[in-house]
């Protein structure tokens, strides 16, 4: 309607300029994202090994994948990592946000301190934590030097525990971010609601539990989406911190896929694992996008 009231000579540019500007990025994503997804899907049905080989083998690669112990270790690791990372970051973040919401002094400074880890790349986080958790260099050695010689903290080199070091580093990196999101949400709550609840006789924990946190539902869901997304994508942190080791004890699907496709010469298997990841992400994202878009169009 607005367009029709403008002079006619602007019509052409107005109609085509946005499309022209957007065209390169549209083409690039079409080719390099969707095109490669399709190519990868195709590869997962071939006998590709070191290099792509277009010999159709049906679901053979998927059968191999499901029979592969290392794949299941990676899947369970992702599961453990995801649940613990999302759960604990959320709890720590909410807790910090509630503490910071009590109008304390130096809030701006403290907020920056907690938010800062988010500015680091996972590679930096991973490397830093690798040093700190290394029994010969970091925490364990420090305790020994201070005289507590019976202290052991060998999770980094313990195959049963190595995935939890990834959890620790990821929580350290992300809880400040969760805190910032929740703090913004908490600040949006009218002060007088809390006052009203105080007069109603509610204690502070009850006020948060029954009134404020329920009002944080939208923040909770967007944070959940962001953290889930970080968890599934986590690759660089694992590579930097444990390298998937010891052995393959801290592998996640992304590192598994990388190892198969690019270092072990099992491109077909790698493609199949990549397809499995894509499908599980879509299973989460598509219903979410659907509900969001439907809400937006209404």
């Amino acid at each position: 309607m607005i367009q029709s009231t403008r002079p006619a000579q602007y019509g052409f540019a107005e109609r085509w300029l946005p499309r022209l500007v957007l065209a390169p990025s549209f083409l690039l994503s079409l080719v390099f994202i969707y095109g490669f997804v399709v190519w990868n899907g195709y590869l997962s049905f071939t006998a590709s090994s070191l290099l792509p080989r277009y010999e159709w083998v049906g679901f053979h690669q998927y059968a191999r994948l499901f029979a592969n112990d290392r794949w299941w270790v990676a899947v369970f690791n992702l599961f453990k990592f995801g649940v613990l990372f999302i759960g604990i970051s959320m709890l720590v973040g909410i807790f910090l946000a509630i503490l910071l919401d009590q109008k304390i002094r130096f809030e701006g400074f403290i907020r920056t301190v907690y938010l800062y880890p988010m500015a680091l790349s996972f590679i930096v986080t991973g490397t830093a934590w690798k040093w700190m958790l290394n029994p010969g260099l970091g925490l364990e050695k420090l305790m020994h030097d201070w005289g507590w010689t019976s202290f052991t903290f060998d999770w980094l080199v313990n195959p049963d525990m190595s995935i939890y070091t990834v959890v620790i580093a990821a929580i350290w990196q992300s809880s400040g971010f969760v805190m910032a999101l929740f703090l913004a949400g908490l600040r949006g709550i009218d002060d007088s609601i809390i006052k009203a609840a105080q007069i109603d006789g509610a204690t502070l924990p009850r006020i948060y539990w029954k009134i404020i946190l329920p009002a944080m539902r939208p923040v909770f869901f967007s944070t959940l989406m962001i953290l889930a997304h970080i968890a599934i994508k986590s690759f660089d942190l694992v590579v930097a911190l444990t390298g998937g080791g010891p052995g393959f004890s801290s592998d996640v699907p992304a590192t598994y896929m990388y190892a198969m496709a690019f270092t072990r010469g099992e491109m077909g298997l790698g493609s199949a694992s990549a397809m499995m990841m894509l499908l599980s992400v879509s299973a989460v994202i598509v219903p979410y996008l659907y509900s969001e878009l439907r809400r937006g169009s209404r």
Partner: peptide, 11 residues
């Protein structure tokens, strides 16, 4: 007390 902004519990 009744507040200027009503202060109803939103959820």
């Amino acid at each position: 007390m009744v507040f200027q902004s009503y202060a109803l519990y939103p959820t």
